[in-house]
Design a binder for these strands. Structure first.
Lengths: 194, 194
DNA sequence: ACTAGAAATGAACGATCGTTCAATATAAAA
DNA sequence: TTTTATATTGAACGATCGTTCATTTCTAGT
């Protein structure tokens, strides 16, 4: 009795994520989104409600992808700590060249938005905390496996990691190329609080 | 034979800086600027050329203010290193509460803009490098005065400082309040490469 | 006081913004 | 095959965007 949805929701959100990630919320127009995801205004609004609604879904999508990548890194590598390091290198070195923006989409969003879009801002903040918690969980697992001393504070290390990633990604957009990124990342894991 | 300019250019740029700093380039409209700086469109365009032109002047103004604050901190405090630390605390703790945004305007701009506004983007990148150079100059002065070992790499420390500031300011906007910011800043100056 | 010329004004421009909705197309149920 | 409900379309909306320019206001030099 119903006509089934034609468009591939996952694929559409992925394309929208890339555009929003590149140009930011205010820098992206609905017209550009229509072109990129190949949908007409009516369909977009039926499926996502508004420009804000679609953006919110892309934030969730971006976060989920990040968590999956972290999980993948930590299981693929020979140790959890090596997995974390591989994850950071993926973010900062690989994505610096091929991602829509070398910066973290969540950090970009937190930087861009004000309380005029408090719902989106809160979503981005919350997602950043989710990722930090995932770091902490991995670090605690590493601690149980003896990779990290029991005297170390995993919450502190997770927070430190977030700060280093945010700082490095911003810096590397400003000073593109010519940076010993791999070496700088190694340094992070060889300094306190690690 | 000529009518002298009425508006106070310095004051106007300062107000424009605060609005742009708060809302970003794309998030700020000329109408909002008109209200804040109390000038009519014609006057603004006669004086600054365009929305981009005014933004570029605010970037220069912001950078100049930062350099002056750094200079002031380093001469007021009892040592250069203490001055640098005071400067960082000014940025991260004081400005987190009262500035238009807790984030660095240059970092915000670099995060927000793409090559669609390459002139502004380059200006922001360049200004960040100028400030890093000022850090390096102060560190070298501290080195000559024996505050820092001669074995330390001032360029490396200056870069490290930039990354920590960018990271901390982003992080503290995401996790407002409840952070031991002063302690975290002390930690920066007590870890490598310091 | 007069006047020349620059500064300041604000109505108005075309373009684009995010969004709506009547009309159309389509696929499943009858 | 017909009916029915929903997915999709795209022209069009009012609002706002950045910008222009004919006009008015003001001041310094005569």
């Amino acid at each position: 009795m119903t006509k089934s949805t034609k468009f591939d929701r996952e694929q559409v959100i992925d394309k929208a994520t890339n555009l929003y990630w590149q140009k930011g919320f205010h820098g992206t127009s609905m017209r550009q989104l229509q072109d990129v995801i190949d949908m007409r205004p009516g369909s977009i609004y039926a499926a996502f409600g508004s420009k804000e609604g679609l953006f919110k879904e892309t934030l969730a999508h971006y976060t989920q992808q990040g968590l999956l990548t972290l999980e993948r890194c930590c299981t693929t590598e020979h140790s959890i700590l090596a997995g974390l390091k591989a994850f950071v290198k993926e973010l900062i070195i690989v994505q610096a060249e091929q991602a829509p923006s070398s910066m973290c989409m969540l950090a970009k969003t937190i930087g861009e938005l004000t309380n005029d879009n408090s719902e989106l801002l809160d979503e981005a903040k919350s997602s950043l905390k989710t990722i930090e918690s995932a770091f902490q969980t991995q670090l605690e697992k590493a601690q149980l496996q003896g990779e990290i001393g029991l005297d170390k504070d995993c919450a502190l290390m997770a927070r430190h990691l977030q700060i280093q990633i945010a700082g490095l990604r911003t810096y590397s957009k400003a000073y593109d190329g010519q940076l010993p990124l791999a070496q700088m990342i190694d340094q992070i894991f060889d300094s306190p609080p690690f």
